[in-house]
Amino acid sequence: MTGIPLMIMIVAIIIAFFVFLYFVPINLWITAIFSGVRVNLIELVFMRIRKVPPGVIIQAQITATKAGLEVSTSDLETHYLAGGNVANVVSAMISADKANITLSFKQATAIDLAGRDVFEAVQISVNPKVINTPNVAAVAADGIQLVTKARVTVRANIQQLVGGAGEETILARVGEGIVTSIGSADSHKDVLANPDKISKLVLERGLDAGTAFEILSIDIADVDVGENIGAKLQTDQAAADLRVAEAKAEERRAMAVAQEQEMKAKAQEARAKVIEAEAEVPKAMAEAFRSGNLGIMDYYKMKNIQADTDMREAISGTKPTKSPGTGKGDKPKK
């Protein structure tokens, strides 16, 4: 029974020893001392309690100290607790110091917490980056479309990384400048002959204002001739004008047909009134006979005059008229 408590005690001592080494990282403290970093052992214990990995903080401070940078352990720990990348910030500061670029610890942490890769930004500031624009289509004054592709060489602007616009804004502004430059050209041949004019005009517009980059150069990589937009627009306009003219002609035709129908209706109405009036003639003659105002000899004289009139009209080629009282046209006498 004495062996079991002894074994339990040994296991407890081993566990306590490893717990002590976890909370009191003696090896890390010794490494820091020999690396020239003055750090208190109690401070490392408090890092463990605050759930900050001492290895990350001390290793970053050792790297900064060896590079000649003055960064306190408290600042590194604060940046880690804020969610920053301590190692990336220290690497960026070392790279900026070697390239003679002014970058303070406050600026580096602000850039890192803003969501940008501060180390990559320093690298782009040292080694400019080339951004390829997508195909940009623009139309010259003569109606010919040109499809252009450009290469934009940019350098990171450390002072504008926080709050500055990104690559998408640069590409949009360059595309807008290319469209404006080609659109102001009198002929597409001028653009094809001197594509460097596009670069000069775009660079003069100051497209990198308010962005996180500085545009160093804009080089036109390719210019292709596209469609004849002017001719296409004229064709579409002519087709639209033709449809409008056809619609107006159809409207005039419909109005003419309506007027013709109206005239026919009026003519039929007039003929109906004539027929109605002719129907009253026999009644009037009969009434004249009864009242004694018209004699038989007068009637025959009227018929002779009517026959003579019909003969004259037949000889002249006009249409014979209808004889009053009968409603029928009399044949001319031979």
Rank of each mutant, 00 (worst) to 15 (best):
I220W: 03
V136S: 07
V136L: 11
I296D: 03
G329E: 13
A60V: 08
P25Q: 02
Q145S: 12
E276H: 02
I170E: 00
E120A: 14
Q59Y: 07
P195Q: 10
Q259P: 02
D236M: 13
A110N: 07
A277H: 05
I170L: 06
F23H: 04
E269V: 08
S181P: 01
A82Y: 08
S95V: 11
V89Y: 01
A258Q: 07
I178H: 02
M255Q: 14
K266L: 15
L113W: 03
D241P: 05
L203F: 07
D190W: 11
V191Y: 00
T169D: 08
A141H: 01
D219Y: 10
A64E: 04
G183S: 11
E120V: 12
H188W: 08
A231P: 01
L81M: 15
A258P: 00
E269D: 15
V39Q: 07
L103Y: 03
K283W: 02
G175A: 09
N88V: 06
L242W: 10
K248Q: 15
A82N: 13
K303M: 09
L44V: 08
S316T: 14
K129L: 06
D186C: 10
V225Y: 08
N100Y: 12
A284M: 10
A99Q: 10
G183A: 12
V52F: 12
S199Q: 05
I296C: 02
E278G: 09
A172P: 03
R205V: 06
D308P: 02
A277W: 04
R151F: 06
I62P: 01
V89I: 10
V118M: 04
A87G: 05
V45Y: 04
P53V: 13
A314R: 03
T78M: 13
K106D: 15
P134Q: 06
R252E: 08
A82Q: 15
E250I: 09
K232A: 03
S291N: 12
T2A: 14
A307V: 06
F213T: 01
A212K: 00
Q234F: 00
N304Y: 13
T326N: 04
N132D: 10
Q160K: 14
G68Q: 14
L294W: 00
S323P: 03
T309Y: 12
D142L: 08
E70Y: 15
K331D: 11
V154Q: 03
G175Y: 01
Q234G: 09
L171I: 15
T235F: 08
D112C: 09
D190V: 09
D186V: 14
G210W: 05
L103H: 00
D330R: 10
A272D: 07
V139M: 04
L146M: 07
A247I: 13
V37Y: 05
S35A: 15
V281G: 00
V191I: 15
L69R: 12
A99E: 08
D298T: 04
I4A: 12
G177K: 02
A286Q: 13
G206E: 07
A245I: 15
F105E: 01
I49T: 15
V11E: 07
G206C: 08
K273E: 11
Q268L: 15
V19D: 09
K98G: 07
I30R: 13
V179C: 04
R252Q: 11
S217P: 05
G164F: 03
I315N: 12
I15Q: 11
A240D: 12
